[in-house]
Design a binder for these strands. Structure first.
Length: 424
RNA sequence: GGAGAAAUGGCAGAGUGGUCGAUUGCGGCGGUCUUGAAAACCGUUGUCCGGGCGACUGGACCGGGGGUUCGAAUCCCUCUUUCUCCGCCA
């Protein structure tokens, strides 16, 4: 959510910058400004009547104390009309404030000035790439065939137990999951992230704090009986640690990470290109989260990008890093880097990480602030997060790119974690 | 799941209808003293929204929401959470 101050002070620049995201904000900004003006007028009026009521009540109090009962009674009778007026003003104020909030949450975050315009993923900017695209042997197949051949991931069993999109990992397949999770967490710890094991269901306040609610309600599994949501990413619980928190500037940046399963309903997104591990309802992911000082949040973003990149290098996967164009960015992001690995058997890039700076957009909802030493005022923090990494497509790429007639070779870095060098 | 008790500022803990945003202690910050530190003493110390160039000033908040009243931290309703006892249990 953008701050009202920003809109009040820089309305035209807000509208201009949102055009990069192909969003016409003219009408909403106009409504917000009107409602804001209205809100402040109402508050001024309401406050002054309330002040008068408060002072009258105090007078009545002292009259009672001094035993001037008749005077008190008279004053009491005169107050009714003023009370009604105040009640009405307060109600209107509440309604106008709520309307303004409703408008405000419809505005996407402003893209950073480096973000280029564009309509779709084709217009994303490739920042750099690395790794070597492998030459596959004749008869190489996509991962959905490999997992059957070696009996390491079973979709049919998942369908039996739960439903489509809930795979069962078996034997070396399960061991590979655990190996990757441990590898990612160990690397994260070396990079200065504190490990968190959060709850994987969250309440409504948390869903609102990171922006999943109310908009993306349908994307989350909802446990109706207790009104809890299954997390779509560890970003939700880990970022919400800092909801309603005021940090010291010296603590920034805060670096946390966590492994969790992630649950996504992915309503309506099934079809071609989502076969096998490419899109699931439940998957594993290690997420890194930073809370940063606004002046240094882009340093944090670069640091996170380097960290994610180092993981792909160590896993010896061919990858590229793209900076999303305005049209491909999420509602909440100010700048996003996507990481894609080359899937040799599918002959396409698979997105394995999305690393973003949300600036103060999320922090404003979360009320996550910091205070400079000695300062009276608080300022909104910047929040950032990135996948480091999501497992399924990494597994898909590892299986496909490393397949040989003898079996699937594990990258050297993983062998101590898996306990085997070959899936055969 | 059953019965009872409770929820107040960073923490501890007063306050049961009338200048209470809230006594006090601890912690934090600033100062005096000291070569420095400690101790002692003095001062200061919540958040949010308005008005004002500013000095300053109005309002809200005592777990959340609603109600009674001229007036609510204090009374009533409701939800949530915590604690104690019983039951169950990885």
């Amino acid at each position: 959510m953008l701050t009202i101050n920003l809109i009040r002070e820089q309305a035209s620049s807000v509208i201009e910058r949102l055009k990069i995201k192909n969003f016409d904000a003219t009408e909403i900004v106009g409504n917000v400004l009107d409602l804001d003006r209205r809100r402040r007028e109402l508050q001024t009026e309401s406050d002054s009547i309330q002040a008068e009521l408060n002072s009258l009540s105090r007078e009545i109090g002292s009259m009672m104390k001094e035993g001037r009962k008749d005077e008190a009674e008279a004053a009491r009778r005169g107050i009714g009309a003023m009370k009604d007026k105040q009640k009405q003003l307060a109600d209107t104020l509440e309604e106008v404030t709520r309307k303004m909030q409703d408008e405000l949450v419809r505005l996407p975050n402003l893209p950073h000035t480096l973000v280029t315009p564009g309509r779709s993923a084709e217009e994303n900017v490739v920042v750099r790439s690395g790794g070597v695209v492998p030459e596959l042997h004749a008869g190489a197949v996509p991962h959905w065939d490999l997992i059957k051949k070696y009996d390491i991931i079973d979709f049919d069993l998942g369908i039996k137990i739960t439903g489509a999109g809930f795979p069962v990992y078996k034997g070396k397949g399960a061991r590979l999951q655990r190996a990757l999770i441990n590898f990612f967490l160990d690397e994260g710890e070396k990079a200065g992230y504190r490990e968190i094991e959060p709850p994987i269901v969250v309440n409504e306040d948390s869903g609102f704090g990171t922006g999943q609610l109310p908009d993306k309600e349908g994307q989350m599994y909802h446990v109706g009986i207790d009104n809890l949501y299954m997390i779509p990413t560890a970003e939700v619980p880990i970022t919400n640690i800092y909801r309603d928190v005021i940090l010291d500037a010296a603590e920034l940046p805060v670096r946390n990470m966590g492994y969790t399963p992630c649950f996504r309903r992915e309503a309506g997104s099934w079809g071609a290109h989502v076969r096998g591990l490419n899109r699931l309802h439940q998957f594993d992911k290690v997420e890194i989260v930073q809370i940063a000082h606004p002046d240094r949040s882009y340093d944090s973003l670069e640091e996170m990008v380097s960290h994610v990149e180092s993981l792909l290098v160590k896993l010896e996967l061919p990858y590229r890093i793209v900076r999303l164009c305005g049209g491909d960015m999420s509602f909440t992001s100010a700048m996003t880097y996507d990481f894609e690995v080359w899937s040799a058997a599918q002959q396409r890039w698979l997105e394995v990480s999305s690393t973003s700076n949300f600036e103060a957009f999320q922090a404003n909802r979360l009320k996550c602030r910091f205070r400079e030493k000695g300062a009276k005022q608080t300022t909104l923090c910047h929040t950032l997060n990135g996948s480091a990494l999501a497992l399924p497509r990494i597994v898909a790429a590892l299986l496909e790119n490393n397949q040989t007639p003898e079996g699937i070779k594990m990258p050297a870095i993983l062998v101590p974690y898996t306990g085997f060098a070959l899936i055969s």
